[in-house]
């Protein structure tokens, strides 16, 4: 417990939605991230992935609950300490080009965190660091003098990663970092993140709607639906034996490039879309789309059950429905 890098405790984020109504973007999230560990957070649009990221980075204020960084609650930190915590807490965004200032050269973009957090470095030392980092993320040596628009989407994402990693942060938050890229380029970026994580010992919080992408990078996985935790556990265990019907549906929705398999997968597709968070279903929020829902699911909010293997699940029926029913 004490060696946790990041702890999220009972996190709730509620947004006002006009006329006195409110929306629970996150409704009770508890998780822990150890040094050097990678946690994947998956779910559909509106599941609370991005709100979780923003709450961890203190970009939105939680309604209740806390984010604990190296044993200290972030929201109680004085501004100066928060600033130095931010040095260890970096982010890579989904839209690579939009997250880079078009008027700055790539060298200036990657050097900026050093200018802010490492005033001890002189211009020459900074330049050296930047060049090493650009080379490390696989950009050509002349990249520093060029502007973001001169690069492809995949290369812009490399620039974003270079900027985030130049301070060797303890945690790198990745918000859908590859979903705007071609499949071939996705693989390059995932392998780059994989290598950087190993070399630098950086922990990753990797947010994605694609379970196949998360699998290569993350040791543990959290599945969110409508702001609630559905399932949490070691990635390999969850892929081998997904317990929550929602996790199963997400896995079944991944297109497989095999014409003997994929047409059949399309024939049992999870129906519908997540309900409006303005009026979430009673009981289990997933029940309106769940093939296994029964009367009790509408009555009772499933409690969070954990086991000794570090798996957690919120489903009343997971034992009954057994492994991978078709």
């Amino acid at each position: 417990m004490t060696n946790a890098l990041l702890r999220v405790v009972g996190l709730r984020v509620r947004f006002a939605a006009g006329r006195g109504a409110s929306v629970h973007a996150l409704d009770g999230v508890d998780l822990e991230l150890r040094e050097g560990e990678a946690l994947g957070v998956v779910g559909e649009s509106g599941c609370g992935k991005s709100t979780l990221v923003r709450a961890i980075l203190q970009l939105v204020r939680p309604t209740s609950g806390t984010v604990v960084w190296l044993g200290r609650a972030l929201d109680e930190m004085p501004a100066r300490e928060l600033r130095s915590a931010r040095r260890d807490l970096q982010i890579v965004f989904q839209d690579p080009l939009a997250s880079l200032d078009p008027r700055m050269t790539v060298g200036e973009i990657v050097a900026e965190p050093l200018r802010i957090h490492r005033p001890d470095l002189n211009a020459e030392a900074r330049r050296r660091e930047v060049h090493q980092m650009l080379a490390r993320v696989g950009l050509p040596p002349d990249a520093a003098a060029r502007y973001p628009h001169q690069f492809s989407g995949g290369q812009c994402q490399r620039i974003g990663i270079a900027r985030a990693m130049i301070l060797r942060p303890k945690l790198l938050v990745c918000d859908e970092p590859v979903s705007a890229l071609d499949v071939s380029v996705q693989a390059q970026i995932i392998e780059l993140l994989h290598d950087l994580k190993r070399e630098c010992g950086t922990a990753l919080l990797f947010v994605s709607h694609n379970l196949a992408v998360v699998r290569r990078l993350c040791e543990r996985l959290l599945v969110l639906y409508l702001g609630r935790m559905m399932e949490l556990g070691p990635t390999d265990a969850i892929y081998a034996d997904p317990r929550h019907p929602y996790t199963r549906a997400l896995l079944e929705a991944i297109p497989v490039p095999d014409p003997d398999v994929q047409p059949a997968r399309l024939s049992h597709v999870l129906p519908g879309e997540p309900p409006s968070p303005l009026s979430p279903p009673s009981g289990c929020v997933f029940r309106t789309r769940c093939p296994h829902a029964v009367e009790v699911c509408a009555r009772q909010v499933p409690s969070w059950e954990t086991d000794s293997a570090g798996r957690g699940i919120a489903c009343v029926r997971w034992r009954e429905i057994g492994p991978e029913s078709a």
């Binding site: 499949v183 380029v185 392998e191 694609n210 196949a212 990635t235 991944i254």
Partner: peptide, 20 residues
């Protein structure tokens, strides 16, 4: 080969196409 697949071990690197 560059597609992440569910039927290979996650320890196996994705085989990205090099370059652009």
């Amino acid at each position: 080969d560059s597609m992440p697949r569910l039927d290979v071990p996650s320890s196996e690197p994705l085989r990205a196409i090099r370059g652009q």
